[in-house]
């Protein structure tokens, strides 16, 4: 397939966004009943559920740690979430992303408050259109908050891309596919810290600095939306 033109002369992207514009974002907290905390997040056509179980007893028991909780995370995509059906089970990509998402969450959850337990987080991508790990992490962080698990901060995340020489905020799938770089970033904004950082692609030093600044701007907006989503659920509970 020929590479389509992704950015117009006047800096408009394939889906009509400006270079530094996020996709339409939807967040809802407490959407799955059986879990201890859950969230649904949409970044454009990227749609993700996250659910948290725990702190609960560790299975098998010998994996329990005396001084802190263990945190398990599974990032998974449904078979129909992508263009060509994804085979069932975990791909190598999903195994890697489960690890980096878990490590991002381990950076902020107060695990030492729940020794000998496990906190299990499931991220289920029901439709993938770019930025699934960052959307998943944004949802997982909301689900942890919904479960009432104490954290040093919330995590907000977004992917910055380089497309036709331009840095763009919140890459969608076609931009990722034909673009020159994909930089998923997750931050704990209140702690001024990065909790997930990967680069797949090529960026100059200057581009990398600009991309990180662009990610930070997007993240502060996403963080604000997360707080509002939590308030929506918990203020309506009080009133009801």
């Amino acid at each position: 397939m020929e590479k389509p033109k992704l950015i117009s002369e006047d800096g408009v992207r394939v889906d009509g966004r400006r270079l530094d514009e996020l996709r339409p974002i939807k967040m809802e907290v407490g959407v799955l009943d059986k879990s201890d905390g859950s969230a649904y997040v949409e970044f454009g056509k990227t749609k993700v559920f996250a659910a948290v179980f725990g702190p609960r007893e560790v299975h098998p028991k010998h994996l329990a740690l005396p001084e802190r909780a263990i945190l398990n995370c599974r990032y998974h995509m449904t078979s129909f979430s992508v263009e060509d059906r994804k085979p069932l089970g975990m791909t190598r990509r999903e195994v890697e992303l489960s690890k980096v998402i878990r490590e991002a969450l381990e950076s902020i959850v107060f695990l030492e408050e729940f020794p000998r337990t496990s906190i299990d987080i499931y991220v289920e991508v029901i439709q993938a259109d770019g930025g699934t790990r960052t959307t998943g992490l944004t949802a997982a962080s909301l689900a942890l908050a919904d479960a009432g698990i104490p954290m040093a901060d919330m995590i907000a995340a977004v992917a910055v891309g380089k497309v036709e020489g331009h840095l763009v905020l919140d890459v969608c799938d076609i931009e990722d596919k034909y673009g020159e770089a994909d930089l998923p970033v997750a931050m704990a904004p209140r702690l001024n810290s990065i909790v997930l950082l990967q680069l797949n692609g090529r960026l100059s030093r200057e581009e990398f600095q600009k991309a990180m600044a662009l990610a930070r701007e997007g993240i502060s907006k996403i963080y604000q939306m997360q707080r509002e989503a939590l308030k929506r659920k918990y203020s309506s509970v009080e009133e009801g």
Partner: peptide, 15 residues
């Protein structure tokens, strides 16, 4: 060029 980055452990990287 920077051609790959991977934060490969838990923890906070101060911006």
């Amino acid at each position: 060029n920077i051609v790959s980055i991977q934060k490969n452990s838990p923890g906070l990287i101060p911006i």
